[in-house]
């Protein structure tokens, strides 16, 4: 029996220490997932904690013949989707000008070593592109690129059939490529650095229209 299996078994019996080991093991994959979905460090931190809490309370529904990792991913990605969907409704009804999660993606690059700046810009670029996708498409892309999951595993995490996931990824990849093309066209037209291209209002409108 692997360590993980033992921790899961003990956590199921109410051992919080054992579950803490699982949190330690999966903290980075889950945090990266919530960050990629939400695009804001503080939001991602809170959502990742909530996802672990949900997992703990639902441990009895976990089928030990399946992968624990994909089960955890499924809980975390659905939590993010629920959160964004609820929030979008609130935003639309309150007519707030700008959700903060997109501001963070557009924040000034951190001062420091050049490499860190480039990395920060790339992260901002990626988050800007991801924000253009529907929530389900975003989750599928995150699963594909950061966790290298097969189509079968992505279907397990996100729900739906394998062929539905295939067409979802196809559509999402085209949308991401088009985002890149748009940005380049705008950049050559206005001759401005590509980081400043998409004002947050525009992202917001796209999110709201969907």
């Amino acid at each position: 029996m692997s360590d993980e299996t033992i921790w899961i078994k003990r956590a199921r019996a109410g051992d919080q220490e054992a579950f803490a080991r699982l949190i330690e093991t999966y903290q980075t994959p889950i945090y990266n997932l919530t960050y990629r979905m939400l695009g804001d460090a503080a939001e991602a931190d809170d959502a990742a904690q909530e996802a672990f809490l949900r997992a703990y309370t639902r441990l009895s529904t976990y089928d030990s013949r399946r992968s624990f990792k994909t089960w955890l991913f499924s809980i975390a990605s659905h939590y993010c989707i629920d959160l964004l969907r609820r929030r979008r409704l609130t935003w639309l009804s309150l007519d707030e000008p700008l959700p903060s999660i997109y501001v963070a993606a557009l924040a000034e690059p951190n001062p420091g070593p050049e490499e860190q700046t480039v990395r920060g810009e790339q992260t901002a670029l990626i988050q800007r592109h991801l924000a253009r996708l529907s929530l389900e498409d975003r989750a599928a892309i995150v699963m594909r690129y950061w966790y290298d999951l097969s189509y079968e595993e992505i279907a397990e995490v996100c729900g739906g059939t394998v062929s539905a996931i295939k067409s979802r990824l196809h559509r999402a990849r085209l949308a991401l490529a088009e985002a890149l093309v748009d940005e380049r066209r705008d950049a050559s037209r206005r001759d401005v650095p590509s980081e400043r291209l998409h004002p947050p209002e525009r992202l917001y409108r796209m999110e709201a229209m969907r």
């Binding site: 919080q16 579950f19 803490a20 949190i23 330690e24 903290q27 980075t28 994959p29 889950i30 945090y31 990266n32 960050y35 990629r36 460090a41 931190d45 990742a48 904690q49 672990f52 809490l53 703990y56 990395r119 790339q122 992260t123 990626i126 690129y145 950061w146």
Partner: peptide, 19 residues
């Protein structure tokens, strides 16, 4: 694109919240 690591102290905070 690398995975963004969980912030320092994340696991401890999550465990405390659980408790």
């Amino acid at each position: 694109a690398p995975a963004i690591p969980a912030p320092v102290g994340f696991a401890e905070r999550a465990s405390a919240r659980l408790a």
